[in-house]
Structures are given as structure tokens and as C-alpha cells.
Amino acid sequence: MKRTIFSNQLLPWLLLAPQLAITFIFFLWPAGQAIKQSFLREDAFGINSSFVGLANFTALLDSPEYLNSLKVTAVFAISVTVVSMGVALLLAVAVDRMLKSSRTYTTLLVWPYAVAPAVAGILWWFIFNPTVGVMPYVLEVIGYDWNHISSKTDAMILVVIASAWKQISYNFLFFVAGLQAIPASMREAAAIDGAGPVRRFFDITFPLLSPTTFFLLVVNIVYSMFETFAVIDATTEGGPAQATNIMVYKVYFDGFIGQNLGSSAAQSVILMLIVISLTVIQFRWVEKKVEY
């Protein structure tokens, strides 16, 4: 709260006008449309639509395809989060030990943040390509026959790797910052108390890092649920046999390709509810961080 403020009444509205106009036209209005649409069903010609209550939602929850998509999304989001955060934490702890070389390593590790998810998808798709890729060639040596075009598991592994790879740099930066914020005296005290490096990590460092970890957990779930559309579209397109058809991809597919507007809108509404709850969790955490 500012102590001194300007008293103009019209000017603040003029200043807010561009932001509010765009927010209203491209955010609030479409969101409202999606909500409205989710209670309607169009006829076969797309001319008339009638109110159907929650029918779109119940239809979704009865559809094995949608339930599959929920399951796929959960597996995908958890895998991406665990892989990217795990690798990032390992690298951050290693860099935290470095004095002189930490800057160099950081530079060499952060740049994938700038790679577009779509490009990340293409790169890994190429590496794992069954005919020309490097990885299937290597895997064949150890006796694994890789084929993400036919194998559901292989397809899921591919999109998880591509999505997690891009996110490592982000998590790494926040873990490094979190580690640097832990006072050296804490670890020194534990060292004097006779705790070795591994014990120290689990007894002191990791608990003190928990605000960062929790924050990243939310961010990574949001990322893997909503920002990986491009990875999926550039690689598997939801296949094979729906194995990688995450919710965001299904909304797009049903709405644009399938032209099933009622169902797509209902899916949008469900996704909105998920984002809202994640945002609420995240902001609760921010309040906590202030006290911490």
C-alpha cells in the first residue's frame, strides 16, 4: 500500500484500458463461452443447440477414452515432474559443491530452457526414430527393440523424456538458488555434530529445501499438463492407440479435428478447474514463503 497516491479518477482507467480490454476479449469472454458451451449440445448440422445440463460432463466421465486420457495425463505429469526434478536436484547439489566452475556448468545446463517444446519434441523424436535414430541403435545392442510408433510404453517414455529434458534447466536454477539460500552455518553445525555428507543432505539440506521443492512440484505439474501440447503434437500426436493422449491434446483434437464442441467445452471447463486449484495451491505457498 502506497502512502502517497495520485488523486486522478479517470487516468487509472485509461492506463488499465488496454490490459482490461485484452483480458476481457481474449480471456474472460472465451472462458465464459466455454462454460456456456459445456451445457449445450449442437445438432448434427451445427445450426441449433439445446441446453443439456450436465450431460456433456456425464458423457465424458462415462467415456473410456476420457478416463484413459485422465490416467495418461496423471502418469505423464508425475513422470515428467519426478524425472526433471530428480535430475535437476542431483545436478544442483553437484554444482553447489563447486566454487570456481559453478558458473560454467550453470551456463552449460540452463540453455535448454530456451528451446521450444515443439523443437524439443522433434529432436528427441529424431534421436529415437526407429529407422535412423541413435538410441534405437544403441538399445538394440542391449537387446531392446525400441519402437514408439507401435509400443505404447515406448511412446510414453519418449514424450516424458522430451518434456522432462526441457524442464531440467528451470528446476536446476531454482534448486541452485534454494541451496544457496541455506545458510552455510547450518551445514557446518551438522558437520560438527558428526553428520557425513549424505546424512547432512537428508537431515538438513533436503528439509530446508522443501519450500523450493514444493513450489517446483506445482510448477512442474502445471508445465507437464498444459505446456507440453507442442511436445505431443510434434511427436506422437496422442498415439499409439491413445497412449499419450493427454487432456490438453484431447481438448484440441475433439474441438478442432473432431468438431465436438460440447464435449471439448466440457473438457475445457474441467481443465480450468484444475488450473484454478493448482493456482490456489501455488498462491497459498507464496504466502507461506513470506513467513518462512
Binding site: 458451451q37 498444459f226 505446456e227 481438448v251 478442432f256 475445457s268 488450473v275 484454478i276
Partner: peptide, 22 residues
Amino acid sequence: WCIFVTLMLPVEVRIVPTFQVV
């Protein structure tokens, strides 16, 4: 609050209606 709400509406969740507006 209007501005805050945009945080909860990524383009991915309102694809079709936003496309229609544009």
C-alpha cells in the same frame, strides 16, 4: 482480480472459443 484471473486461463484450456473470437 480481472487481471489475476488470466493466470488461471492458459490458452490451452480455452482454445476453441478464443479461436472463434479471433
